[in-house]
Design a protein around this nucleic acid. Structure first.
Lengths: 308, 308
DNA sequence: TCTCTGTCTCTTATATACATAAGACAGTTG
DNA sequence: CAACTGTCTTATGTATATAAGAGACAGAGA
């Protein structure tokens, strides 16, 4: 009834760990292994047993030791290491991304359960959770409604995002010079320069860096609502980013440059400069999202970025 | 397996409806009755059947007619008209309110299910939902942690509330003169004067009016995140309001007067006045909440405001 | 004494079961 | 033919069942 994704994930992580060991080396205690794999001793234990029967480990009087180096074929497929809930989240987002749902469409949990190959329990749990993204509405005793990624949606997300990030930035610039965020910010800034210097090749690294910078700022708010909102928004951005790949390099270049102005403002603790640069950066980000929405989702069949 | 709270609620609402009818009067069609009771025809139908066997209605060739006036004893107790989920929400809030949970305490769903007399499914659904209040944190594959209504919590809620309400107010004052919100605002203002004129008796009406005013403002934002936040925050305020009854009349009087200044600012579409008055009002509201938190929850056993 | 290990108990995550509620359909009546 | 009604099908809300996973405990070895 309960999937064994935890076990499979731990199994894979254990293989990674074994890769750094030499043949015949003895393994640490189950307690230590368990905490290294971030699971309970119970799970660590069953991983040891199966690795032994797979011939990777050997068990003798002194305990488990490495028998042979792990190979690619020993791993469980990554898909199986996701819990049912996580798998539903990913599939659901992909459906939205691919335009399989239209705005206003009614979703019903039994149908979704059938199509996603899980139970209604899991679907329900996910739909309740997802409700907070603002994309789904509940009709009690009836179906759910998909509200759609529309222009309204984008306006509302960006309105909140702008308020929250400005506020967070004002917290950030009040941090003492010794706070770790300044070091992190310096690293982020350096990465911007690195990528810009080799933009033709590395422009695809922008989204991850963008996420890192904005998360640093939001985290400075130390406000659970602000941080939670950014978690949600960044998941949405992550998925919708795929919708429009026109001029990707140019857009990313422009955004990187805007970031540098923004970062300079933060480092100078100049709130006016911060507000101005952040506003113009978010305005172009919003425009990009709006354009993606106008274009609508494209079919992504075969795009490795989605399925991997 | 599924409770029949919908049926019982509809049954009670139907009794209310029948109270306005005269003996022997014929009932409307099931479709019309169903939409009046806000349920499906199926449910309306079973209400008719049971009201008939209870002797309130009579069925003959021409259909159902009123046989006798409904009495207080015909109603289902209000508790039974709440869905299991709603009942859990109320009980959970009461537990928090009464200090049955301490900050940092671990909650586990089986235990809660036992104590609340429901299934773990319902508890889980509720905990997931409640997670977004920022009061509960999830440890995957393990227990939940109650973070507590602490000073930090109050600061974070009020920080967001202030941002959201100022923004919403700026939307409100841009509404055309013909928008229905101005009429509603005028009514709210009049109610303030009414209550102030008879404050010794009516000061307890303040919380409901407070909720009405602030909701009106938040709704003007037409932003789902802002409105959803206020839904959550107002539930928290509703429950924590009970924590501190010292100087209740004085506090409410002061707040009513602050509201009037705020309302005047809104009606004059004077954003400066709005910002200033809102800020000072929210500051005193926050101070009140902070004080309640310092005092901590009191045992409310027997307080009718909670159990009714 | 400390840590490690095997065993046992209890919880969580998920699937399934099932009564209530919603809504579709078709026959009926005015 | 338009609205109303009875019947039927399907879905939701909630309880229960169960495998996977977490952690407690006590005995064993250093």
């Amino acid at each position: 009834m309960k999937g064994n994704a935890v076990y499979k994930g731990a199994y894979n992580r254990c293989l990674d760990y074994l890769a750094d060991m030499t043949i015949d080396e003895k393994l640490p205690s189950t307690s230590e292994l368990a905490s290294r794999l971030a699971v309970s001793r119970t799970t660590a234990r069953s991983v040891l047993v199966s690795l032994t029967s797979a011939g990777v480990l050997r068990l003798d009087e002194i305990g488990h030791s490495l028998q042979r180096a792990p190979e690619a074929g020993d791993y469980f497929p990554e898909k199986q290491t996701m819990s049912a809930a996580a798998a539903v989240e990913r599939r659901f987002m992909e459906w939205i991304l691919q335009g399989d749902f239209r705005a206003g469409q009614l979703l019903n949990s039994s149908e979704l359960a059938r199509q996603f190959g899980t139970s209604t329990t899991t679907i329900r749990e996910y739909l309740t959770h997802f409700h907070h993204f603002g994309l789904i509405e509940r009709r009690p005793n009836s179906a759910w409604v998909f509200r759609g990624i529309t222009a309204d949606f984008a306006e509302e997300v960006y309105e909140v995002r702008e308020m929250f990030e400005m506020r967070s930035a004002s917290h950030l610039i009040q941090m003492p010079k010794s706070a770790p965020c300044w070091r992190e910010l310096a690293e982020i800034e350096a990465q911007h320069h690195d990528i810009l210097a080799d933009i033709d090749v590395r422009y695809k690294e922008f989204p991850a860096l963008d996420e890192r910078l904005h998360r640093l700022v939001h985290d400075a708010s130390r406000n659970r609502y602000v941080i939670e909102f950014y978690n949600i928004a960044s998941a949405i951005f992550h998925y919708t980013y795929q919708w429009n790949r026109d001029d990707e390099k140019e857009r990313n270049t422009r955004a990187l440059k805007q970031h540098l102005v923004y970062i300079a403002g933060l480092r100078n603790r100049d709130m006016h400069a911060v507000n101005a640069s952040l506003k113009s950066h978010l305005d172009s980000a919003r425009t990009t999202l709006m354009k993606s929405i106008e274009l609508g989702p494209f079919k992504v069949t075969g795009t490795p970025a989605i399925t991997s």
